[in-house]
Each structure stands twice: as C-alpha cells, then as structure tokens.
Amino acid sequence: MISVEGLSYQYPSQNEATKKISFPDFKVARGEQFILLGQSGSGKTTLLHLLGGLIRAQQGNIKVEEIDITQLSEIMLDQFRGKQVGFIFQKNHLIASLSVRNNLLMAPFLAGKKQDRDRVDQVLEELGLLEKRDSQIHQLSQGQAQRVAIARAIINKPALILADEPTSALDDTNCEKVIQLLTKVASENNAALIVATHDQRLKDKIAKKIIL
C-alpha cells in the first residue's frame, strides 16, 4: 500500500552545515504495523511528516495506494491528509475549548466528511471512553487524553495511522494501555500503523521495524 523509494529530505539551510537525510526504501502493506526506531535527530518525525504529506521531499517518491503524494497539489494534499491519514502526536494537542465529542467531530468536519455521531460513540466505546463523551479536555488524565487523540486519528477510518512518540509522556501503566489500544484499533480498522519512537518500552510490542 505504501512504498518509499530513494527518499531524501534537505532541511532549509539555517547554518553552513546543511543537513540532508536519506531514508531507506521500504514497503508497508494494508493493516501492517511497523515501529520506526532511531536516535533523536535521525529524522523520525521528518519521515512521518513526509509520509503524511505535511512537507514535501526534494528527491524520491512516496506512493500511497498507487498515488505519488509528492506530486499532489497543496489542496489535494490537504484532502489526502483528511481522508487517508490519522496523526497521533507526543502531546495530545486536543482543542481545549471543545468537549471530547466535539474534538472528535472536528476531524470529519475538517476532512470534508459527514459528521457521524454514531461513529464517535463507536470509537469511544472501542477505546473505553464512552462515559467521557461530554467531558472537557482539562478534566481528562494524560492517558485518557492520549486515548482521545487516538480516537480522533481513527475516526475517519484512515488507511494510514502515523504516531509520533505517542507514549513518551506517559507512565508505564498508561504506556502499556495506549500502545495496546493503538495496535488493536489499527488492526480492527485495517489501517497501516507506523509508530516512531525511541521509547524502549515499545520495542517488543511491534515486531516489524524500520531503523534509521
């Protein structure tokens, strides 16, 4: 489903040492789960952003469902992100002025899809958050908030879930719970999952590895 070939990214030069990262070629099939390992600064976040169409690579191509996303226009990229990709970040970045339910409804709204309340309930149920549906964001614990972020990432049934250090801000119990749920909902929704991390606790949870 995803194939990466000859991909490299050149950072806009801030000093004389202009940094260029070349990424290994790899393929990810639908429903497959990968862990993306590497030292900090090795370009894990950059690779995730390239895959999610947040930035453009100077060289190489990324094919998602046979479409080369490096060739898409800005608006097509926006639509690609909205419909095909779900992001989860280190900090949950939920919108504080909205309730849990409205945070989740935001995703289909921004992706230009129908806002389906049943789907919201269904996803919250899967993640064990149904009773938190009408809570405000500040009422949630960190682990709960990260689960809401996962819910938001999968609500549009994306083909690809990209998680950037999803557990590094969590304690062991929450880390365990979140990664379990993440892998579970990814396979339930038949989505490819790539987790970028340097969190040692996750090493054994996902078998397939991409190492930078």
Partner: peptide, 10 residues
Amino acid sequence: AIMRSMGASR
C-alpha cells in the same frame, strides 16, 4: 497545525 494535519486547507 493540528487542524491542518486533519485535512484543513490553508
């Protein structure tokens, strides 16, 4: 930025 990542256009 999060909104953009969810598909909001510029």
